[in-house]
Design a protein around this nucleic acid. Sequence first.
RNA 1: GGGGGCGUGGUGAAGUCUGGAGUUCACGCCGGCCUGUCAAGCCGGAGGUCGCGGGUUCAAAUCCCGUCGCUCCCGCCA
Length: 595
Amino acid sequence: MTTTEYRDTSAGALRADDAGREVTVAGWVARRRDHGGVVFLDLRDATGVVQVVVNPEEAPASEDAIHGLRSEYCIRVRGAVRLRPGETANPDLPTGEVEIAAASLDVLSPSSALPFQLDERSDVDEGRRLQYRYLDLRRSRMTANLRARSKTVAAMRRTMEERGFLEVETPTLIASTPEGARDFLVPSRLRPGQFYALPQSPQLFKQLLMIGGVDRYYQIARCYRDEDFRADRQVEFTQLDFEGAFWGQEDVLATLEDIALAVVRAVRGTEPVRPFPRLTYAEAMARYGTDKPDIRFGMEIADLGPIFAATEFKAFAGVLGDGGSVRGINAGKLGLSRSGLDGLVARAQELGAKGLVWMVVEDGGELRSPVAKFLSDDERAGLRATLDAETGDVLLVIADAPRVVSAVLGQLRLELGQPAGHDELAFLFVTDFPVFERTPGGDLAPLHHPFTSPVSVEDMRERPDEAISKAYDLVLNGSELGSGSVRIHDPEVQAQVFEVLGITSEAAERRFGWFLEALRYGTPPHAGFAIGIDRLVAILQNEPNIREVIPFPKTQTGADPLTGSPSRVEDYQLSDLGIDIRPEIRAMWAEGEDV
RNA sequence: GGGGGCGUGGUGAAGUCUGGAGUUCACGCCGGCCUGUCAAGCCGGAGGUCGCGGGUUCAAAUCCCGUCGCUCCCGCCA
């Protein structure tokens, strides 16, 4: 990036070897230390920071310019690189051994006083940062995140190209399919009253590509889902989407390991543990209480049912008799007071459990607990053995409906044991997801999507609640990085899935008829995946949310404070589209709401 | 749709629980001094509708109600 019309050297690249060179650099005034005579400038460009020294005895012509400089002025400096004298080298700076003795200095572009300081120490309100994102992006944190993101995508493209994948673009104005997440709609001018939808994923198009003979497809795809925001969710996000013909699950998982390895090498310079461990969905739920376990730490959930199966301890026995489950975790040496332990009970109740029993292992193996006196010797011994308890450990036990026990213990496990940062990277495959889940209303809904191949069509039809699919997730440090599956390539099977989901053949024909038709022309078996790039980069960069790795993200209410989107439009624009705003909305506008 | 947190000169915070004069700290900004600093230093100065609206009170940044914005979570995210 070095030589351009305005410069011949990158500021951040200068080292002791460069001493004696005459250079021209261009960048921003990161800091100014004005001693009245000699003035030091930290000049920052995209590559880093270098110190510029302006000494009026050496460069009298620069004197006027130098005292007028302010933070973030865009300047150009010509001068000789030299070793810093005596003890003045700065070991904290990559360029700290050298400085540029300014012979001339010009201001390319002055800067207004800043709305906030660009140093890394101060924590600025995020709305303010987003309003001035172009300034925020000059900070090293943001620069590093943009670079990491670029390296991630480059490593992905390299990996896919090396393996013979074809990058294909799919449309972003598509037909709405009222399934899954809420669609973003785009009105059509040429067909008034009709709408495009923005894609939630390129799913059906990449399957059409498989039918079309594209042996291996990939795309860095922008996807849109009009649902509420979270730290790890924006309404538009980016995925590495890929699919392979004549593929099964193992082909996908092997490719995912290759991709993850290339990305971690490129961004971190390290390698993750391989092969990635695998858990089935059932194992993950049983041992970690979640389908996206963080396996960087133990504290696994243990089934205590056998210990209490023949028990007289009525509280637990009653639950077991009622189809419930009794499970626990060894939370380790928490060092909590009595009130701290009771706080865990309150937390468990907040999470939906009826209660929580804590036990502290004393010297000699005794258990200190509100329920200690109700436990038999066998039960105590069983608890210690099953939970691998040592003196000082805190054991947490919940008896409730299996779903509740899993959810609450899984969450407590994370709150008590999850490491704060992401220095360690623990990838994990979760496989054998159920085909369906039950909605709160009791209806069947696809857990992944309705194009996922069930392991057995018979099971799917006869025991839909237990049926397993050929779907799998990639998990990193407790975050779901993405999902994939072996797809249905048989139109009959596809029709049966719709049928089990309660979609009539007429409705299926209306919504997906074009796709069912396509499946009838010699569809190759195929499988694929999509990796969430925002989440991956956020974890690699140790960022707490994905906004930090998205250059221009939206706020939780879907707004962009910089450009003011979303915004109202002119009436003639609506008129072109055959659209009007409902009177009650216009009334709200008139009252000055929602401006 | 629901629950929690936050909102105080340009920035970040303290003050709010327990009402009593816009008080404090750090940074930035403006002016002055200063020739080896690197978060430079020293002296001086300007700068606030305590998010907004209403209520209680002799008195509100502080208590109450509402509202807006930002954020975390639940729902939702095939």
